[in-house]
């Protein structure tokens, strides 16, 4: 498993305590799991995502990620409606491991309460949080 210094944690996304990332730069918000989460899970073999149109609250489970011997739920960083899911993951779940921020993205949402973004951490804050739990 990677040491904290080895983790790929881009500056341009925000993070949650459950190790999701969210890209808030566009009109819609793209969500996935970060490098730390995929490294902890090991080789990912299956990803289950919600239906397009699902309306979920901040903290709700929007999917599951499975490795060979572990299963992990993924949570909504903020409330919103699912407007896109990454269907490539159906046949290539390994993209979550090999490219967590690009090809391995999971869903795109339209946030219903953009203020909730403020509860997320930037890279520095997340790194500090990680050091605390490691």
């Amino acid at each position: 498993m990677k040491e904290i210094l080895e983790l790929n944690l881009p500056q341009n996304v925000l993070y949650t305590k459950d190790h999701e990332w969210m890209d808030t730069t566009g009109n819609t918000m793209r969500i996935g799991i970060n490098d730390y989460a995929q490294d902890q899970l090991g080789e990912i073999v299956y990803v289950e995502l919600p239906q397009i149109g699902a309306c979920l609250n901040k903290g709700d489970v929007f999917g599951t990620v499975e490795s060979v011997k572990a299963v992990s739920e993924v949570f909504m960083p903020v409330s919103g409606e699912v407007i896109q899911v990454n269907t490539d993951l159906e046949n290539a779940p390994e993209l979550v491991s090999s490219s967590p921020y690009e090809k391995g993205w999971m869903i795109e949402i339209k946030a219903s309460n953009p203020d909730e973004v403020k509860t997320m951490m930037d890279r520095e804050a997340y790194l500090k949080f990680l050091e605390g739990i490691k």
């Binding site: 299956y46 490795s67 060979v68 011997k69 572990a70 299963v71």
Partner: peptide, 9 residues
């Protein structure tokens, strides 16, 4: 597909 099973889930 052991992730369906009780020892993991």
């Amino acid at each position: 597909l052991a992730t369906r099973e009780q020892h993991i889930r």
